[in-house]
Write a protein that binds this DNA or RNA. Structure first.
Lengths: 154, 154
DNA sequence: GGTATCAGTATACTTAGTATAGTACATAAA
DNA sequence: TTTATGTACTATACTAAGTATACTGATACC
């Protein structure tokens, strides 16, 4: 009954797409479920610090991320800990020596970070690189380890 | 002078890590620069709609993302358009037939979405799948096209 | 004419994040 | 022993981002 307007190509149901969205039936969208803590501001940069840069202590993280405040860092660390992305080395938090590291779940976010890095290196090269020249994934991550991480091989 | 406290392993400078963070010198972190619009709430789901599900019109997107309001969708679409992730098919916005599609820049966010999907399919399988069984990247995206997209081959 | 859909706006409200200062404890030097 | 610094945070007040709900003007359908 609204055919004359809506009989455009996007209306041919989401199942029979020519796209690459999985044929697997999702009860709920996996992107949506992942975007709890991961989608919040600063989270990705905190994971970058702990996972890639090995900046693993409160004030060091604070120093490395301009704009991030102790209040929000404290909240994010707690959320990341609660949801199992990070953990303390000593198991329990002892004042003066709180050192964070990624769990297996946290390490599984690294492929996402790698692709965000690749995206930024291609599309924001003007601010990212001194020579302003865009670089590809393989150029910035030449290590064979990276493709293994991305494919989930450990 | 603060050696006795800080001579822990994370203090051995960020350059000589055993990690896989690129040796390339960044003027600014590519993750940070990418997290402008991309980091905002709902953006990834909107890109999923347009890029994967081919849900490309205002009210359809609104229907497909519970919780998203017209006000925010309107703002996100404008931001995504301004920063070159999406564009209208007709070039200009004509009332009653506004249809969105990804630009090249927008398509380059798909590898990020693919990995978020993979992450959710592994770590949130209990809510994502009916059988609650986690699935790997290759299981949910068996198409060879996916690895080509991820590697940036077009 | 009455109803529905289109793509949004307008207004008010709530939550999330920011700014800035301060806490309690520990170490080190003078 | 005082002073200075560093640790990981917390408290309070404020601003920006997102939410809820209603509404707009246009086009189309019956």
């Amino acid at each position: 009954m609204r055919q004359s307007i809506t009989s455009l190509k996007e209306e041919k149901t989401n199942k029979e797409q020519d796209g690459i969205w999985p044929q697997v039936k999702f009860v709920q969208c996996p992107i949506r479920t992942s975007l709890g803590v991961l989608g919040k501001k600063w989270t990705m940069l905190i994971l970058r610090d702990i996972g890639f840069l090995k900046i693993v202590r409160f004030n060091r993280i604070l120093d490395s991320i301009p704009g991030l405040t102790p209040r929000v860092l404290s909240m994010r660390l707690r959320e990341l800990e609660d949801e199992g992305y990070i953990e303390c080395v000593g198991g329990k938090r002892e004042p003066l020596i709180v050192v964070w590291r990624l769990t297996e779940k946290g390490r599984d976010t690294l492929p996402i970070l790698i692709h965000i890095t690749a995206f930024g290196s291609k599309w924001h090269a003007d601010v990212v690189f001194e020579d302003k020249k865009p670089r590809s994934l393989n150029e910035i991550f030449p290590q064979p380890e990276v493709s293994r991480i991305m494919m989930g091989i450990r």
